[in-house]
């Protein structure tokens, strides 16, 4: 810690930026509250999805069947007033089924571009690993550059755009593991675990009061935001202060994955960018105007767990990526002034 000179600001009046941070935090908390009406007992998961949404990234949700992955995305889409598309990924799904294709219009005697479901604000790619790599790769361009190329012509995707993909880690037969390039384009990989007993009880109590049997009723969720709101949140998040020491801490964490024994392939620079964006978004959700090392640590696991590859020896020993990342977070010195 260096005791640098800083002029004390005796003026306690909040700045306009500070007001916007508080509003943004209030707004995001309102969204979380709305989603929690349906998606019970997984507050951290909701927060992480919002982090990805505000951070301008994409989310890969992984969990065993029946944990509400699709419900979470549907709830978010209900809360969001923009366009929403859902694509069920199957082995026979073609890239053009997602991106769109050129079709000859006999009446006009010309080719017309028929845009696929990817032209939306929120795209739910359900069970993305059921489709072959060729179809999965159709998402690469749009996830990174926000545009789609059909018949040689590029089409921009309206902002905000977010891909929310789900995959099931249990039923691996007949699936196509996502390639590294595809995985790297997801800002966060969120693991959904079983809810607690209290949360499960609350969910059942909520279900018993609804008329619909078996299906979750999304009517309680109010539409709170439009596309422009998300754009505003993103712009505010970019204004969240991030100190050089924190940036250095992010770099040290990312680089540690490349030098850590037991990791064959470490995280790339895109991981550092994702870590920074996610940290800012998380700070915004919590109402902070700056990023702390705690924010970085909070998003470290979801931001890096899909970007590192453990050695065969570690996998044989039953060590998973989360354990390794926890070890890294403990060993890398936290920033001190």
């Amino acid at each position: 810690m260096t005791d640098s000179d800083t002029t004390p600001n005796s003026n306690s009046t909040p700045s306009p930026a500070q007001n916007s941070f508080e509003k943004a935090s209030t707004f995001t908390q309102a969204i979380i509250t709305e989603i929690k009406k349906v998606f019970v007992g997984q507050d951290d998961i909701i927060e992480q999805v919002l982090v990805a949404l505000i951070g301008g990234g994409h989310v890969l949700l992984e969990g065993v069947p029946g944990l509400g992955k699709t419900l979470l995305i549907r709830s978010l889409s209900k809360c969001f007033g923009g366009d929403f598309s859902r694509v069920q990924f199957t082995p026979d799904l073609m890239p053009s089924d997602i991106t769109g294709h050129a079709m000859f219009n006999a009446a006009k005697q010309e080719f017309e571009i028929r845009k696929g479901p990817i032209f939306t604000n929120l795209l739910l790619a359900d069970e993305i690993n059921r489709a072959p790599a060729k179809t999965q790769a159709a998402l690469l361009e749009v996830m990174q550059e926000g545009q789609v190329t059909i018949e040689g012509e590029s089409f921009s995707i309206d902002s905000p755009f977010m891909v929310m993909a789900t995959q099931n880690p249990v039923e691996q037969e007949g699936t196509y593991p996502l390639p590294e390039a595809e995985l790297d384009r997801f800002m966060l990989k969120i693991l959904i675990d079983y809810p607690s007993a209290e949360s499960e009880f609350a969910m059942l109590a909520q279900m018993s009061n609804q008329n619909s049997a078996g299906n979750f009723n999304l009517n309680p969720i109010k539409t709170l935001m439009q596309g422009k709101h998300i754009e505003e949140l993103r712009s505010i998040a970019k204004r969240v202060t991030i100190d050089d020491e924190v940036l250095n801490y992010i770099v040290k964490l990312t680089r540690a994955t490349r030098e850590w024994s037991g990791i064959v392939r470490g995280a790339g620079p895109r991981a550092s960018i994702a870590l920074m964006s996610a940290s800012r978004a998380l700070a915004l959700i919590r109402g902070a105007e700056f990023v702390t090392p705690d924010d970085v640590k909070q998003v470290l696991l979801p931001a890096l767990r899909h970007r590192i590859l453990l050695s065969a020896a570690m996998e044989i020993e039953g060590v998973n990526t989360d354990e390794v990342l926890r070890d890294i977070s403990i060993s890398v010195e936290a920033p001190r002034h």
């Binding site: 810690m1 004390p8 202060t241 100190d243 020491e245 105007e289 700056f290 990023v291």
Partner: peptide, 16 residues
């Protein structure tokens, strides 16, 4: 401390 260290936000005189 976090505010002044990472947010560069100086606390109010009363608080300090």
């Amino acid at each position: 401390w976090q505010r002044i260290a990472y947010g560069h936000l100086t606390p109010e005189n009363e608080i300090a």
